[in-house]
Design a protein around this nucleic acid. Sequence first.
DNA 1: GTGTTTATCGTCAGGAAGACGACTATGATC
DNA 2: GATCATAGTCGTCTTCCTGACGATAAACAC
Lengths: 252, 252
Amino acid sequence: MPYDPSAFPPFAVTVDLVVLTVRRHALCALAVRRGEAPFQGRWALPGGFVRADEDLTQAAARELAEETGLLAHDPDAPAQDNGAHLEQLATYGDPGRDPRMRVVSVAHLALAPDLPAPRAGGDASNARWAPVEELLQQGGYGRDGEPVAPLAFDHARILADGVERARSKIEYSSLATAFCPTEFTVGELRRVYEAVWGVALDPRNFHRKVTGTPGFLVPTGGTTTRQGGRPAQLFRAGGATLLNPPMLRPEV
Amino acid sequence: MPYDPSAFPPFAVTVDLVVLTVRRHALCALAVRRGEAPFQGRWALPGGFVRADEDLTQAAARELAEETGLLAHDPDAPAQDNGAHLEQLATYGDPGRDPRMRVVSVAHLALAPDLPAPRAGGDASNARWAPVEELLQQGGYGRDGEPVAPLAFDHARILADGVERARSKIEYSSLATAFCPTEFTVGELRRVYEAVWGVALDPRNFHRKVTGTPGFLVPTGGTTTRQGGRPAQLFRAGGATLLNPPMLRPEV
DNA sequence: GTGTTTATCGTCAGGAAGACGACTATGATC
DNA sequence: GATCATAGTCGTCTTCCTGACGATAAACAC
């Protein structure tokens, strides 16, 4: 491998973000409207250039903070504060994925609890939380009957990969708690699983599973009735990051 | 996200390869000796620049072919031919990971059956299969008593990530068959698991598990005694790529 | 033949999960 | 205030899977 610094093609490197949250029982992703060509006016994933002195993770955390105000915390640290989970997803570098120049995008996956309305540089109309199914359907019609344009660039593929990563990772890790506020009930955690997987889970078996896994949930002592019905115990995420044996995703 | 093509810092983009195989009951990785500074004379992972008209996967497949002669096949296709499994691993882009310039490396993971001696541009002394434990130990001594220098750049980290990916992925997928030739026995497959995980598995329970999983193994009708002992049935990898329920890795 | 090696089949106990009954403690409705 | 709807929590039972391990089979070495 001769390594000639004068003989490499220059690339632009960006980070794109798949920011997921659960709103109204649906898995939603953050989308921003593009202000310039190409794909002007179309929805896209938030992202931007990596700066010259910046690590890839730093760039992703900076973009996340700019778009949502969320602070990222290290994926290896337990989700104690109310920051978002952030991890690298994959890298997309097809020549021609950006018509202007050769751009390699290092996509990152961020998981956040339900948030107030997003802000994209202060302009709310240019950023929104959209159900991932709406963003991924090709040329259909949204809930409001308006035609849905596919996401810009290859962002539909990136979003699909991020959603699949989240769906599989909550099986064997405690990552689902990243969608919950600091204190949450077993039922709220179950509704996260149901929204991400799009299935219904048995509340009794789910309760047995999560409370029976050592280190997964820590009771805080409090209770809440914010979901109606009988008061539920409040928990925090425990130190355990791996779920063994995993939570089984029902097939079909 | 203002997107000004004149205002992005230029990056060099490379692919680095973690090529794993199983030799003599040990998980081994392909290492090449560096001919130039920095890290001249040190061992490193094979890799090279992504060309201007090349996809990232194409670049990785090209490097793999140059180093080993192996043809990569699509990760989504079943491992039918005797090509190698190739998938993207992760991307490493710390400023300063290469002292000369800003390099972002998209690491790929390749799994291959046991091969003849490697060739690095025709020079055998500059490429070798080394047990991953030997490559990952920091400043220890190899089997021959010579001091072991750590891998160049951040390649130890990349290799460790690749090994961890392989270790976890053979749990829930049929990826272990990528380490085997086209036809193999249950015992040979078990020795792959034992080498990758570094544990001993019960031959009877392993046999029950792999032969009882529908679509995992397809008997070819033949038998072999190449391992000694009673003749063993020969199998090919079946179409199933996911193992459900997964193969459980013994703890400790 | 005897011993060794590897492959393969069987048995049994323990653990986890799916299905589901039963009970509890709230707020909402009449 | 009684009743109802809602959500949470505890148990039970059956089934499946795994880990431990005995037993048999078919080759080779001597």
